[in-house]
């Protein structure tokens, strides 16, 4: 399962970087991320200007507040953009082999379903991670203002890697289940939307009428739905290290469980796809 020992990964990355979207998407992604960060900076500091931001007058916006504001804006924007982009790479990964009739060649080689899956998964995740890493300099602009340290950047990035890994696994499952890329991509987007929106609706409905606004005051099943929400998972990472348990840890368990389930189902589908290859 190593990266270097699997010819699929090299092939996939080479083909991906040859496509026009190989450079267009990272460019657009960075432009969008930068634009959001600039806008948020303007909204926080305007009309006082930067000189007032760093003043020590308690009624003025403090530097660390700008730092935290920029960091949160960059992190949520990054997650939003990458949730939009991840299905593009994973949902078409196996369907393209079916569409161009190359799956039979792979299945009759000595790669086997596990190596085919791993190659596709690693290649699609690596491309999304490339975008994530490319956005890190923008995320770390917050360092200049204070309020954000290495730990915050690390745990946020780790959380996003787990979220994107799960989204790639879901996309690959749909890719193994459908014959056409357009169908697999559409269903992957529906899954992302359902995971992002539905848990909040469930949570809001369940929280209506509860005494306090703590997550733990809502019924267990409503909280469980929230643990599968990528935005909530990212939010749970913005806490001190000691408070990662229980919310962040529960989210981690749910995301890893979903990923494992998707892997097993995708492998089963790949094994059975000899007929349509």
């Amino acid at each position: 399962m190593s990266l270097s020992g699997n010819p699929m990964i090299q092939k996939e990355l080479r083909q991906r970087m040859r496509e026009r979207r190989g450079w267009i998407l990272p460019s657009l992604y960075l432009v969008a991320l930068s634009a959001v960060v600039c806008l948020v900076y303007y909204m926080i500091t305007e009309p006082r200007g930067y000189s007032d931001v760093i003043s020590y007058n308690s009624t003025e916006t403090q530097g660390y507040q700008v730092g935290v504001g920029l960091f949160l804006a960059a992190a949520y924007t990054q997650l939003g953009l990458l949730l939009l982009l991840a299905p593009i790479f994973s949902a078409g990964a196996l369907t393209i082999e079916k569409e161009q009739r190359t799956l039979a060649g792979l299945l009759t080689s000595l790669l086997g379903p596990a190596k085919i899956w791993w190659g596709k998964f690693a290649a699609s995740l690596l491309f999304v991670l490339l975008l994530l890493v490319a956005g890190l300099p923008i995320l770390t602009v917050a360092f200049a203002f204070g309020g954000i340290g290495i730990w915050e950047v690390f745990i946020t990035t780790l959380t996003m890697v787990i979220i994107l890994g799960t989204m790639s696994a879901i996309g690959l499952y749909w890719s193994s289940a459908f014959r056409r890329s357009v169908h697999a991509t559409a269903v992957s987007y529906v899954t992302v939307i359902v995971l992002t929106v539905v848990p909040w609706i469930i949570y809001i409905v369940a929280a209506t009428g509860t005494r306090d606004d703590s997550v733990y005051s809502v019924p267990y099943w409503a909280r469980f739905a929230l643990y599968a929400n990528p935005v909530f998972f990212l939010t749970t990472s913005f806490v001190p290290r000691a408070q990662l348990y229980p919310a962040w840890c529960w989210c981690l368990v749910v995301f890893i469980s979903v990923s494992v389930l998707c892997v097993l189902l995708a492998l089963r589908n790949i094994r059975r796809s000899g007929d349509i290859s």
């Binding site: 083909q15 496509e19 082999e97 161009q100 009739r101 039979a104 060649g105 009759t108 000595l110």
Partner: peptide, 16 residues
């Protein structure tokens, strides 16, 4: 698989 070479009808190729 080690002893067989299989060529399907309408075999696909990676055009790129």
């Amino acid at each position: 698989k080690r002893v067989v070479g299989y060529m399907p009808d309408q075999p696909g190729l990676y055009q790129d």
